[in-house]
């Protein structure tokens, strides 16, 4: 996909203005999306189940201890509340089976694409030469299912963009790959004309990032 990028601009700083054959730009129509880890939907459902048990437990306690005192004035409250809780729990148990198969990602030579959404769909694109750093994280539940989340941080993106539900090994490989791409871009970026803070081009910060994520990765595999 990526080697069909039509024009090499050569020295980035020189003003070159090649004609871009628009039709030959790599599109996203014919991509083969990599699905998320097959266990991810199950992991979300287990998470939802735990949450449902907690909510039902808390509300049952409330129902038994507090509700009798206010039930006179709000006779519809118990039915209403149970209906909402039931709908929410059912929804969060069933929805992952629908939503997760529709998420997916593609790693190309120069960017990472991530699609999601059932009704409201979106395709996000993260060019590697704008990614500042990456992060891996996994909750205990994730680790039990052998999963991890990868976050990419472009400049100004605050909390970053998180891709959940990758296999631990996939996530780690992806992180290493992106880090390599960032470094490659940082080296190529020699015509950058200012004192930029971009960690991507600063070996000191970069190594720090690597260390951080590496240690996390180590933690993951230790589990």
């Amino acid at each position: 996909m990526a080697d069909s990028t039509p024009v090499d601009t050569g020295v980035p700083g020189m003003f070159v203005n090649p004609v871009v054959p628009l039709d030959s730009l790599p599109g996203t129509e014919s991509l083969e999306w990599t699905p998320l880890h097959p266990r991810f939907a199950r992991r979300l459902q287990v998470g939802a189940l735990i949450r449902a048990v907690l909510i039902v437990g808390a509300w049952t306690a409330f129902h038994l201890r507090v509700l009798p005192f206010i039930a006179e004035r709000l006779p519809w409250l118990p039915v209403f509340a149970w209906a909402i809780i039931g709908a929410f729990c059912l929804w969060s148990l069933l929805w992952p089976a629908v939503a997760v198969p529709r998420r997916g990602y593609v790693v190309r030579d120069k960017d990472l694409l991530y699609k999601s959404g059932v009704l409201w769909r979106s395709v996000k694109a993260f060019p590697f030469n704008r990614v500042q750093h990456t992060k891996l994280d996994s909750t205990p539940l994730d680790r039990r299912f052998g999963l991890a989340s990868l976050s990419v941080f472009p400049a100004g993106a605050g909390a970053g963009h998180r891709i959940r539900g990758l296999g631990q090994e996939t996530a780690e490989r992806l992180r290493v790959y992106i880090s390599e791409r960032i470094e490659a871009d940082g080296d190529a970026e020699s015509n950058d004309t200012d004192a930029a803070p971009a960690p991507a081009e600063d070996s000191e910060v970069n190594s720090e990032t690597n260390w951080e994520t590496n240690s996390e990765g180590a933690g993951d595999s230790g589990q």
Binding site: L25, G27, T28, K110
Partner: peptide, 19 residues
């Protein structure tokens, strides 16, 4: 929209200067 996005990606990925 997709074509514009692809074109933007091309511009971004062939040019490291953004700051």
């Amino acid at each position: 929209a997709c074509r514009l996005r692809d074109y933007i990606l091309y511009k971004v990925e062939s040019n490291a200067r953004w700051h």
